[in-house]
Each structure stands twice: as structure tokens, then as C-alpha cells.
């Protein structure tokens, strides 16, 4: 199995799988649409308004910001991550193991690669939707500057592809659904806490900063925050490059790994 073959086996039919997953989300929209909109409101209330009252101004990139202003872009990035990674991690695992959806689709003209590319696309769509919803709320709170914040939309789609690929890889490697607790504990929660979402990394020890820079969420937070603050600059292209390279690599690894579970 080589790279060329995996790419060659992906066709427009991946959108059929995407459409199926989106249709499921629309059927169950109350649980799929409402939480992404309300979750960030909770975070903003708890951390921004509640905790923020006790926190002094945060200095970032040479300026001082309210805690709520500092936090808001981080919440957008976190929303993109959670919604795209969980869609493939739990969603794809359930479709693989419990609902046997892939067994049904693999006997139709879709290839395994079409199915899995469709999974990554629908995960990314969920991430984009969550990112857009949170950006909207952050904008209503007056915490995002425009037009630079519009960069967040394509960025959320790209990062969605990346996190959905991670999620698919976790689903592919977990023998049982409980095993998915491991990547949550080792990967997702550390990212959530240590990617510059809740506090700037500048004050942290060097080894934590180094570790944080390996975590993909850090790079998404960096660009998202700069965009929300209206302070985009050229050095952020390195963050973008990191996300692009990691997305391509993880999508390839995840599809390759999961394919062996579809076609045994």
C-alpha cells in the first residue's frame, strides 16, 4: 500500500459519505447544533466574567488585554478541536463497530478511502460549524476585530481536517470504545489546557513552551488570537505551515490505518 494508491482511491464519492454524516447531524440537530452555540457562552461566563474579575490585565504581544478578550479566541480554537476530533473519534468508532455503517457502504461503489476521506470531511465540517458559531458569539460580545477575524473561518476548516484526522487515527487504533479515554487524557486534555488557550505561554518554563509548540492546538490558537485581535503578522505563516504539514501527514496515516479495519 503506497501513498499514490491511497490518493488514487479517493474520488468525488467521498462527498456521499460526508453528506450521509451531515444528514445524520441534521436529523439529530438539537444535540448537534445547540451545544456548540451554548458551550462557549458557559466558558465565557465562567472563565471570562467569573474568573476574569480576579485576574489582572493579561499582557500579550506587547499590549494589555482583559482576561475575557484574551480568552475568547482560545475558546474558538478549542471548539474547532473538540467538535472535529470527537466526530471522527467517537462517531467513526460507532459507525465502524456498533452501527456497521462502513460494512454497508463498502459494498457500494465507494472505496475504503472514499469512506474515510468523507469521515475526515464531515469531522472538519463540524469543527468549522463550531468555530463559526463561537466566533459569532465572541463577535456579539464585541471581542473580535474585523476584517482580520474572517481568517478564522478557512483556518477552522483546515484545522478541522487536521483534528478529524487525529480522531480517525484514534478510532482506528482503539480496540474498545473505552480505550479512547487514553488519547483524551494524554493528548486532548493537555492541548486544551496548555496550548495558550487560558494563559499566555510566555511565562511558562522552557520545556513546557517546547512541548506546547509540538501540540497542534497551540498553532491554531496563535493564529486565531492574532486574527481576533487584528494583529496578524508574517511569522504566523510558520504556524500555518505546521498545521498544513500535520494535516496532510495525519490524514494519510489515519486513512491508511483505518483502511486495515474496513478491509480485513
Amino acid at each position: 500500500m503506497n501513498e499514490a494508491r491511497i490518493l488514487r482511491n479517493i474520488s468525488y464519492r467521498a462527498w456521499h459519505m460526508w453528506r450521509r454524516n451531515i444528514d445524520v447531524s441534521l436529523v439529530t440537530w438539537k444535540t448537534n447544533v445547540v451545544p456548540p452555540l451554548l458551550e462557549p457562552v458557559l466558558y465565557i461566563l465562567a472563565f471570562g466574567v467569573g474568573l476574569g474579575a480576579y485576574v489582572q490585565k493579561i499582557s500579550f504581544d506587547g499590549r494589555a488585554y482583559d482576561y475575557l478578550t484574551f480568552l475568547a479566541p482560545g475558546m474558538i480554537a478549542v471548539g474547532v478541536m473538540f467538535h472535529s476530533i470527537f466526530e471522527t473519534m467517537y462517531g467513526a468508532f460507532i459507525r465502524l463497530r456498533y452501527q456497521k455503517t462502513f460494512d454497508a457502504v463498502i459494498t457500494t461503489p465507494l472505496s475504503a478511502e472514499d469512506i474515510l476521506a468523507g469521515e475526515i470531511l464531515s469531522g472538519a465540517t463540524k469543527g468549522l460549524f463550531a468555530g463559526t458559531a463561537i466566533l459569532l458569539i465572541v463577535t456579539l460580545f464585541g471581542l473580535a476585530s474585523y476584517p482580520s477575524s474572517l481568517v478564522i473561518l478557512p483556518l477552522a476548516a483546515l484545522a478541522g481536517l487536521m483534528f478529524a484526522s487525529f480522531g480517525l487515527l484514534f478510532a482506528a487504533t482503539a480496540p474498545y470504545i473505552d480505550n479512547l479515554n487514553l488519547p483524551i487524557f494524554l493528548f486532548i486534555n493537555p492541548m486544551f489546557l496548555f496550548s495558550g488557550t487560558f494563559f499566555p505561554l510566555d511565562g511558562m518554563p522552557a520545556w513546557i513552551r517546547l512541548a506546547a509548540n509540538i501540540l497542534p492546538l497551540t498553532h491554531l490558537v496563535n493564529i486565531t488570537r492574532a486574527a481576533a485581535f487584528g494583529r496578524l503578522h508574517a511569522a504566523l505563516l510558520w504556524d500555518l505551515l505546521y498545521i498544513v504539514v500535520l494535516t496532510a501527514t495525519m490524514a494519510y496515516i489515519a486513512i491508511r490505518k483505518m483502511k486495515t479495519r474496513l478491509i480485513k
Partner: peptide, 27 residues
């Protein structure tokens, strides 16, 4: 046309929708 041994209909869709979604896989 494959009628599998194991039930793998889409539990989130109605009877009609199951057929419609499946037909898309064949364009």
C-alpha cells in the same frame, strides 16, 4: 446488490431515508 447477514441499516434515518441515502452511493 448486497443483502448482508448483519443488520447495518442507518438507525438515525427513517425507512425511506435509508433507501435514499444508500442510492446516493450509486450516484
Amino acid at each position: 446488490g448486497v443483502c448482508p447477514q448483519e443488520m447495518n441499516l442507518d438507525p438515525d434515518f427513517s425507512v425511506l431515508k435509508n433507501l435514499i441515502v444508500y442510492s446516493r452511493y450509486f450516484d
